[in-house]
Design a binder for these strands. Structure first.
Lengths: 161, 161
DNA sequence: TATTGTTATACTCTATAACTATA
DNA sequence: TATAGTTATAGAGTATAACAATA
């Protein structure tokens, strides 16, 4: 069953049917338009039920996957400033989702780990967004989604890190 | 000449080399990571030289391409609220880049048009970001960029408009 | 001197509520 | 009663500066 939406002219905005021919090839514009959809999915599947903001969720998930990571490395991975990553970690720590562990030899540094509850939440949240995205993006085949993810990763890799 | 960066492990963040296996398939996450790159390109090519914010530029470009569009339709196309689109239009109008024209029959409504300067700026800005993106994303072939744009457009089209 | 992490603070962006005017 | 657009205001998100402690 194809969606009526698939009959949209190629060079018009998804909402409002505005011409976007000159913007069509702009990756930044298309990323922003696509993000409107994924942001809505995230808000519905994770933001509202688990009270996690997008960045907050990503911080939690990356700590979960990278036990004993430092705040500095997290900040670089997400391109957020040091004061802001500290604030996000604060929130997660106060909710009992992550722990700050003192570094054994370097007394300035610290390791970050998820608690048992944090790990469980990270798993549940990831599962929920994934399912939500697959549901919302039904018009894309599994293959198309794979290609899209790989190309996006290639774009992200152009970053100076 | 291939970039040293192309030797990056597939499931690590571009910066910080964190594992991201569980996030890898999340479109929202990959969009955010890719946006870090395109946002930097925009800031350098348009944001700084022309003093235009991303949304501000997009509003200008869409008005340029859709003469006599209404603020309501613009707001829907960009998924921003009515008060915010009004503020962005205010900024553009005060800089002499767009004009608000009273509607002929409906005295509540108005048409939006770019001025001669606004049109010139829209053209120059679009040209600059495009060139900047092509330069920054040199590791993607022209074909890959086309596929990426089309898939992103397909994602955006999943929006309820 | 450079690095890790923090606090304090200001700025930008966005959202909601309440309003005017018109249809 | 619904719509187009505005104003006022609060909240979320991010940035810079200045700092403490350690390497």
């Amino acid at each position: 069953m194809s969606k009526s939406r698939s009959s949209l002219p190629a060079d018009t905005t998804p909402a409002g049917r505005l011409s976007e021919a000159s913007l069509h090839l702009l990756l930044g514009y298309q990323l922003a338009q696509a993000s409107i959809v994924t942001n809505a999915v995230f808000a519905e599947q994770v933001g509202a039920p688990f009270e996690l903001r997008p960045v907050e969720y990503t911080v939690l998930a990356l700590i979960h996957e990278n036990p004993d990571v430092s705040a500095t490395r997290l900040a670089k991975a997400l391109a957020v400033t040091a004061p802001n990553i500290a604030a996000w970690i604060d929130r997660l720590e106060k909710r009992g989702l992550v722990q700050r562990i003192p570094h054994a030899t370097d007394r300035r540094a610290q390791h970050l780990r998820t608690t048992r509850e944090g790990a469980a939440l990270a798993r549940k949240a990831t599962e929920s967004v994934l399912a939500g995205e697959q549901d919302a993006l039904g018009s894309l085949s599994q293959g198309e989604r794979m290609i899209l993810v790989e190309l996006l990763h290639k774009v992200a890799t152009c970053r100076g890190g």
